[in-house]
Design a protein around this nucleic acid. Structure first.
Length: 238
DNA sequence: TTCCTGTCGG
DNA sequence: CCGACCGGAA
């Protein structure tokens, strides 16, 4: 079964969608952080939780002056746990933060500048080898802390683009990323904004339940309305 | 109650 | 493939 029949030119479709979103939401100015290290900590803390929860944890770390590679490297794990508690999964996430700072300390003498001097492909593979860093977190670090030309995929991307009919609902991370990286110019600004714009759409309009299709700037391009009827029907019966 | 920008271990 | 991990907000 094909999920791309509706579009004769994927590149054009992707750019049209991008421009519609950009015009609707404006530039997103991601990532909200003061330093590359803060981006990385945020990327780990935001795993499977909303950003609101992460903000408190970040502020706690900042106030405690723990938001540097050195401070986290030497801090007692239980102290880190206490400060990041609002972000959820605090025990595992404390381990993940430790694993990351341990890595950059051992390999780069604690310097992110050194780490980001690596070529994209090598560094991506290396990040994936660190405990707690999967494909989404790795790409977020590469794009938003290292300014590499790579696009972050996530649950939002799958929801939006499967509803649009451009991705299979079962697409894996690599398949999702190929859709964008095979059909768009490898430009850091576009990849940075595109992901952020998808986030804005999925957060505010293309919600998991009861999406606001009437407000959606992509409504006329979307394959979803058929299923929406069934949803409404199911809601009534419930 | 449900959901949330995932990742790991079995 | 699936459960565990965890708290906060709609």
């Amino acid at each position: 079964m094909s999920f791309k029949v509706k579009y004769d030119n994927i590149s054009t479709a992707l750019m049209t969608i991008y421009q519609r979103l950009y015009h609707y939401f404006g530039p997103r100015h991601w990532w909200p952080a003061e330093t590359p290290f803060e981006v990385i900590v945020g990327a780990i803390l935001t795993q499977n939780v909303t950003w609101k929860n992460v903000e408190k944890a970040i502020n706690n770390l900042k106030t405690a002056e723990l938001l540097t590679p050195e401070a986290l490297y030497t801090a007692d794990p239980s102290v880190i746990e206490t400060h990041i508690r609002p972000a959820g999964f605090y025990r595992t996430k404390a381990k993940k933060l430790k694993a990351f700072v341990h890595h950059i300390w051992e390999k780069y003498d604690g310097s992110l500048t050194n780490m980001f001097s690596q070529p994209l492909k090598n560094l991506r593979k290396e990040l994936l080898s660190i405990y707690g860093i999967g494909p989404e977190t790795a790409d977020a670090i590469l794009c938003y802390a290292g300014n590499y030309p790579i696009m972050v995929m996530d649950a939002y991307t799958l929801r939006v683009f499967s509803r649009l009919g451009l991705l299979s609902p079962k697409a894996n991370y690599e398949e999702m990323q190929q859709l964008f990286m095979d059909n768009l110019p490898h430009d850091h600004y576009i990849f940075n904004e595109y992901h952020a714009l998808i986030d804005a759409l999925a957060n505010k309009i293309c919600r998991k339940n009861k999406p606001h299709c009437n407000l959606c700037p992509l409504n006329d391009l979307c394959a979803w309305p058929k299923e929406e009827k069934e949803n409404k029907k199911a809601e009534k019966e419930a």
